[in-house]
């Protein structure tokens, strides 16, 4: 088993506007990209479980040209509203950094 961060060159999250979060997983080479993509570990169902959201709200994109996988989810709390913990959404990728990839 290998952890996701050992295969990716960048794992990051960011607001996509104040009401959505988007997580980017970017790879240096096609082999690592395809390994993670084909593993299904970043599937909509898996991500919905990790982030406690309904799978119907999760969208996922694979960009072969950028060697990147993107997962977008609605923010549980809008940026800067009461009880928000991360205005820029910059740390929401953390739970998948050590995800085990077969």
């Amino acid at each position: 088993m290998t952890q996701l961060h050992e295969l990716a060159r960048l794992i990051r999250s960011k607001n996509a506007g104040p009401f959505e979060l988007t997580i980017d997983v970017m790879f240096e080479n096609r082999e690592a990209y395809e390994r993670v993509r084909n593993s299904g570990m970043l599937s909509i169902d898996k991500m919905a479980a990790i982030y406690h959201v309904d799978p119907s709200l999760v969208t996922s994109f694979e960009a072969d040209v950028a060697l990147a996988i993107k997962i977008s989810i609605p923010r549980p709390i809008a940026s800067g509203s009461l009880n928000d913990t991360d205005i820029f959404g910059g740390q929401f990728h953390s739970p998948i950094v050590r995800l085990e990839i077969p």
């Binding site: 988007t22 969208t59 990147a68």
Partner: peptide, 8 residues
């Protein structure tokens, strides 16, 4: 890809 929910 940056800070956009749908990159395409």
């Amino acid at each position: 890809f940056y800070e956009t929910a749908d990159p395409f």
